[in-house]
Design a protein around this nucleic acid. Structure first.
Lengths: 110, 110
DNA sequence: TTAACATATGCGTGTTAGCTCATATGAATA
DNA sequence: TATTCATATGAGCTAACACGCATATGTTAA
């Protein structure tokens, strides 16, 4: 229970959700994440550390760049479901605001 | 995004998860929740307020008792998925520690 | 090796949020 | 109405956490 709450806490932050959404469609370097989210370098680095510790993301080094990606893409589906559950208007991934999670998944595959 | 993070934060607390699990199988009065979770009266009341505000639970008054239940049972499935995602050992609802979320759902229907 | 770029970390701060204690409100029964 | 039981609320404390600033580490290329 403790572990689950801790894990969920990691997801319950606007900045981290932004980052997760950023890398949800493919690996990005830290700088790319910074540009995509508009968050400061320090803040992105700080949150990436949390996400790393929680094993939400994985890293791959390529020269001076470190590419971050989601360890398990099914997290996006879960977040879509949560977003749908939470307020029925907003969807987490960037497809549609009116589809149900299941429909969003299928819509993305087109 | 703000709203989603706020909602997830509500879920990311050990006490509230205990309460959600308590009422996951049917409506309980506050006193029953207190006994089931082992949390203090004040603390349960405090968290129930949060869960109410987040529209996670609904209430029904019956004489001096107020019965709380989940507004949408699909929350349990989502939490099972999150628990499975988080550490592969623990499951949120009380069925099995080794089944995947889908299997848990079907196991419960037996 | 030095300079430039990419990323991480330590420290200090303000705010949020969970918790307890005391108390208040509300409903039922005698 | 008075008492008892059920539930909610307000105030105050503490700890956790998100954030910014400055700086450090690491990598590449000149």
């Amino acid at each position: 229970m403790q572990k689950l709450a801790q894990f969920i806490k990691i997801l319950g932050d606007t900045s981290r959700l932004s980052i997760i959404r950023s890398i949800g469609e493919g690996a990005l370097s830290v700088t790319e994440i910074i540009n995509d989210t508009g968050l400061s370098q320090t803040l992105v680095s700080f949150h990436l550390r949390n996400l790393r510790d929680a094993r939400v993301v994985t890293t791959r080094r390529d020269g001076p760049f470190i590419y971050y990606s989601l360890k398990d893409l099914s997290l996006i589906d879960i977040l879509d479901k949560l977003a749908f559950f939470a307020d029925l208007e907003y969807d987490f991934s960037r497809v549609s605001a009116t589809l149900k999670p299941d429909e969003i998944v299928s819509a993305k595959r087109r």
